[in-house]
Design a protein around this nucleic acid. Structure first.
Lengths: 252, 252
DNA sequence: GCATGTTTCAAACAAACGTTTGACACGTCA
DNA sequence: TGACGTGTCAAACGTTTGTTTGAAACATGC
């Protein structure tokens, strides 16, 4: 029946949405694996059995949270921040970087989906397929389109793919490895305060690289700096300690 | 006594090293959290109680594995691949990238430590402090030294830090997000086959960026492309939720 | 009023985990 | 020989997890 009125006495629909909300927060903070159904229900003020009544089991609850957040995010702010393909490539690049960083670092519910996506990248859940299809693929397409705007449409797929990884990786690394980064580089701005300076840096860094790659097609890069004694490329120097050699006192 | 022969009758030292070996493999494959003591002992051919007899508990076993692998790795191949600070910056950069990628993507026990470090970056364990102090800090110093070689010693710490993140992030992203990358960009080389082309790309990409940043000091970058309707830069619309609000949960 | 379907709850269930226990086998030294 | 420390083992412990149960509370339709 699902009465649509927000009545003072919580009805069925309220319990469901309360669970969705609580689950989104808990999954975003703790990750799929570490988020427990009991913690979610405590936050939602319901019984643990409510999850299985409304959603079936934990994976289905997670899937429902994902669909909910993806729909809401796409309705609100797309990755191109409203810029079409006709905008200047540099502007589109900056908007993309700013959008991804905001979705990861800004406080509150706005960043729930971004953090879920970030976790899905490094520790996939059973819902990875859905996540890729409905959210990550559009993101990848957007990056590709921006890079094509810089390098032209005739570049090989490998170059386009690698350049996309280079840009996206810079955006995600600061969030993925925040625990170590904050220890190693404590003077850098932390959390939401990092969004603007990081946007600036990643844009400049990637811009310079893309312009250079656009100037020189693959294969015509500046000749490599002379390497002393043929190091670095075929990096085998002198006698290797052994051949396979795990170097554990070998058993078996 | 410590008989060095792989004797048919395993003695005490053999059990200990067997556990270390099995634990290293298991931790590298499954991660600290998902690796179970039972699986480690099954692989080592011992009883579950052996872990607590020889190492105390699971964190101490993990710590012992880390120390062992770090010592072995530092003995074998340092991050600078034998290149000193006098080598050409471009050569040092390529050697560093190649070294990190090799430690992540190459098959077999050689990559055990690299994968443990990579996991520690995204999902820290109780041993994070030790890991940072004994292994990650030297890595960061090496990156910083290379960047200083490009940008000069007078750059601000923020620029040096950001540039280091940009380079390291590109190296780790391909491994951290391999599940998604292989789905999204199936035409890219996978696993060990990616080491050489990725080294080439990341080096070129970062090289171009560093040279550009060396050419133009901070603040004198090419003026920004005009942004339509003032989006992207100050996209704050309506009231901010709050001011202080870090809400950047690290969680244990 | 009564039967029916929906929703919630406390309580228990089964599995997996890290950890501990107590007994047994073995080598060493008095 | 007998006591002692070392190393190993099967078995169990206590906790936490996702999941299920069976009985209430509630609204709805005849």
């Amino acid at each position: 029946m699902r009465s649509t009125s927000a009545s003072p006495a919580p009805d069925a629909a309220d319990t469901r949405t309360a669970l969705l909300q609580a689950a989104a927060a808990e999954f975003a903070e703790a990750g799929y694996h570490d988020a427990t159904i009991r913690a979610i229900c405590r936050r939602a003020g319901t019984n643990v059995a409510a999850v299985h009544y409304h959603f079936g089991d934990k994976p289905q609850l997670y899937l429902e949270v994902l669909r909910h957040l993806v729909a809401e995010a796409n309705r609100r702010l797309p990755f191109d921040m409203g810029l079409g393909p006709e905008a200047a490539p540099e502007t589109r690049l900056r908007a993309f970087v700013r959008s991804v960083l905001g979705r990861l670092l800004e406080p509150g519910p706005h960043a729930w989906l971004g953090r879920l996506v970030a976790r899905e990248l490094t520790e996939p859940t059973p819902c990875l397929e859905v996540m890729v299809r409905e959210h990550i693929q559009p993101l990848a397409d957007q990056v590709r389109s921006i890079i094509v705007a810089f390098l032209g449409p005739d570049r090989d797929e490998q170059t386009l793919g690698f350049c996309g990884l280079s840009i996206v990786s810079q955006c995600f690394f600061y969030f993925h490895c925040r625990a170590v980064v904050s220890r190693l580089l404590p003077h850098l701005p932390q959390g939401p305060a990092a969004v603007e300076p990081l946007t600036e840096h990643i844009t400049r860094f990637s811009l310079a690289a893309l312009k250079e790659l656009a100037r020189r097609p693959v294969g015509t890069a500046a000749r490599r700096a002379p390497v002393p004694a043929g190091r670095t490329r075929s990096r085998r120097r002198g006698p290797r300690p052994a051949v396979a050699a795990p170097d554990f006192p070998h058993r078996s």
